[in-house]
Nucleic acid binder design. Structure first.
Lengths: 196, 196
DNA sequence: ATAATGCACTAACACTCGTTAGTAATTTTT
DNA sequence: AAAAATTACTAACGAGTGTTAGTGCATTAT
């Protein structure tokens, strides 16, 4: 290896992706330029290409990293023997926590996936559709077993996921509210709507 | 007046803004180009500037049009003598309906406001903060009067607004669900979380 | 020690961007 | 009918875009 690694335990590629995630969130993927990014990394724009292949490769990495993380967790919850409401609570809590401490990444996967080039775009949307379908299957199963109020499962999924992804506008406006309070308030509201 | 107005009852400026709203939503403000827009309007890019002053003027028009519409409605609800839950239901229903039939505009005001130039950006954010504060005041008033469950009002506002703004991802994936069903399912879930 | 690799640099290419200037045609106002 | 205003056009501007080529230095592997 050559020069100093800016951060311990991270390759330069990881540093680039980390800085990019911040930039993409602040300015949007389209408005963030490679020269912008290079400046934040502390290098010339052309040098970035020694570590990455393209601007959109960064976006792909971020989007699928997030997607995989959620998918992995969902599989664990699906195979666990908890009652439905506990499953949903676990999923909700994971989403909130991801939103709070991997804010940049999650935000981008939520809002900037549009700019993925094909075939990654279709792939991503398929994964997302699949994820939501499986979430709504959990809720539907809960209704059948009589553990959950009779509500349209798709609507419930929509409400839950959207509500959590809205935390971003929270983060900006109220840094005073601590994370646990927010999390428990949110869980309370969202789970209450599922209880019989 | 000169040439044909592409649509009855709308000036060319309105046509431009209408087409732009579609484009801005699909590609994002940054990625949508004036030449793109011109093509949709059926004119050369330079000709657009006979009707508008700049690209960001379009964004401003859209964002503040939406903001004003919500503000006007909020004022009506605030001064009406309904119980708190009815007030909230009215607001929720308006938001859902706006989302369903002014989708493009609302989406842009929700997602593309970042690209507003100052001082419009600050202005917009102030209005938004004000709107949310007043919403949470309504809920807080309901709690004091014992009409609403004791829940953190800000969290409730966040959940409600975010959930509704998530309808966009619905619109794309399930055109089969009719609007009234979606609206009533959503109201059910969101109001249930407020009931004692 | 020598060869091979890794990585940052400068320069540049081939676009695309929002926007302006200037002009001609058409329509509206006087 | 003459003057004024409206609006679409072509051409072009300067700046910014992602990205590639090519060079040279520093580190690693042989």
């Amino acid at each position: 290896m050559a020069k100093i690694q800016s951060k311990r335990n991270s390759t330069k590629k990881e540093v680039i992706i980390e800085k990019a995630s911040r930039l993409f969130r602040e300015k949007g993927f389209g408005a963030a330029s490679m020269r912008d990014l290079a400046e934040h990394v502390g290098v010339e724009a052309a040098s970035l290409y020694n570590h990455i292949q393209s601007k959109s490769e960064i976006l792909q990495t971020i989007c699928f990293k997030v997607a995989n993380e959620f998918m992995t967790n969902l599989e664990q919850v699906e195979t666990s023997p908890q009652p439905t409401l506990k499953k949903m609570e676990a999923i909700i809590r994971l989403h909130i926590r991801m939103m709070l401490d991997q804010y940049e990444y999650v935000y981008i996967a939520d809002h900037e996936w549009r700019h993925l080039p094909e075939p990654y775009l279709s792939n991503f949307l398929n994964q997302r559709r699949n994820y939501r379908k499986r979430l709504s299957d959990i809720i539907e199963g809960g209704i059948v077993k009589g553990e959950v109020k009779a509500i349209d499962p798709y609507t419930a999924v929509l409400v839950i996921l959207s509500a959590i992804s809205g935390i971003d506008s929270w983060q900006r406006s109220r840094k005073t509210t601590n994370a646990e309070t927010l999390e428990s308030n949110m869980v309370k509201y969202l789970i209450e709507g599922l209880k019989k």
